[in-house]
Nucleic acid binder design. Structure first.
Length: 273
DNA sequence: ACACACCCCTGGAAGC
DNA sequence: TGCTTCCAGGGGTGTG
């Protein structure tokens, strides 16, 4: 399930593979992926364009082919692969960007949850799906002070708030659990009740966990692969996610799995009071 | 503001 | 063994 580190890794691998390529044609076999735009119009706008740049905003990839920017969300299992056009097309391939050099960027998505939007470059932040997004964890203004100010009034459970992409972007179920374990905070704590020290730890570990996960190339717990088809290896560093009934690496108590905000939540009830 | 149910979807796991 | 049911999960929407 691609969260910020996985999307950042896909961005970096795709940058090395498709920048400068020219789109010759686009094939869409699952129109539902393309939102608010007919497939013909989607294709018409992209044919002849060059891939100029790739950015990331939260869990969204922004593939810039001026004057348009393709905003792609991988949701659960979306994957991009660059292949030669002779390669057989794998099952669940829904969108193909054919380039002029006989290579193709193929979008494959078993669950079909992924989405693509096409908006004018430079106006991305004014349109859905980016318009409602919250702060970037690596933005300069995301400080411990910012977090203190913004948690003060919030009555939601901390995990719910951290998963809420209109509050802060990039964290999903895996990294929220890992961050809260490192910060030694219970996921069901009401956000406004955190102490300054706890918020300092929370801020520190949001960046630390995400940074280390990016360095590891992301987490492959299900089927995640980067743009080159390679796995990440942060899964070997996970402290709580997916470790139900296994001993906490810090204190030995068995990791528990509860449900918070409708999501499976892993924690050590000894370390996270 | 917040919680919660539901929906999208497939395949692997669990249950029978 | 083979069938059916359950479940995972990001985010959008709708309801209370």
């Amino acid at each position: 399930m691609p969260e910020l580190p996985e999307v950042e890794t896909v961005k970096r691998t795709l940058e090395s593979l498709i920048i400068g390529k020219q789109i010759e044609n686009v094939t869409v076999s699952l129109p539902r992926i393309i939102r608010k735009l007919a497939v013909d119009e989607f294709r018409r706008r992209l044919v002849g364009r060059e891939i100029e740049r790739i950015d990331r905003r939260g869990k969204f990839l922004k593939i810039v082919c001026n004057p348009w920017t393709l905003i792609s969300h991988l949701r659960m299992e979306g994957k991009y692969r660059l292949v030669n056009k002779e390669e057989p097309i794998e099952k669940h391939t829904h969108v193909i960007f054919h380039f002029t050099d006989n290579t193709e960027l193929r979008y494959k998505d078993v669950r079909q949850f992924g989405t693509m939007d096409l908006v004018p470059t430079g106006e991305e932040e004014k349109h859905p799906p980016l318009v409602t997004l919250g702060i970037e964890p690596f933005a300069k203004n995301f400080t411990s002070e910012w977090l203190k100010q913004n948690l003060r009034q919030r009555k939601a459970k901390l995990k719910s708030l951290l998963l809420n992409q209109t509050f802060i972007v990039g964290l999903g179920n895996i990294y929220v659990d890992e961050v809260l374990f490192q910060a030694k905070i219970h996921p069901e704590r009401v956000a406004s009740t955190l102490t300054e020290e706890e918020i300092d730890r929370l801020h520190f570990y949001i960046r630390k966990v995400l940074t280390e996960a990016i360095e590891a190339g992301g987490t492959s717990v299900r089927t995640y692969r980067n743009g080159k088809g390679e796995m990440g290896y942060f899964q070997v560093k996970l402290q709580v996610y997916g470790r139900k009934n296994q001993p906490c690496y810090r204190c030995g108590r068995l990791i528990e799995r509860i449900v918070v905000a409708g999501r499976g939540t892993h924690l050590c009830t000894n370390c996270q009071q």
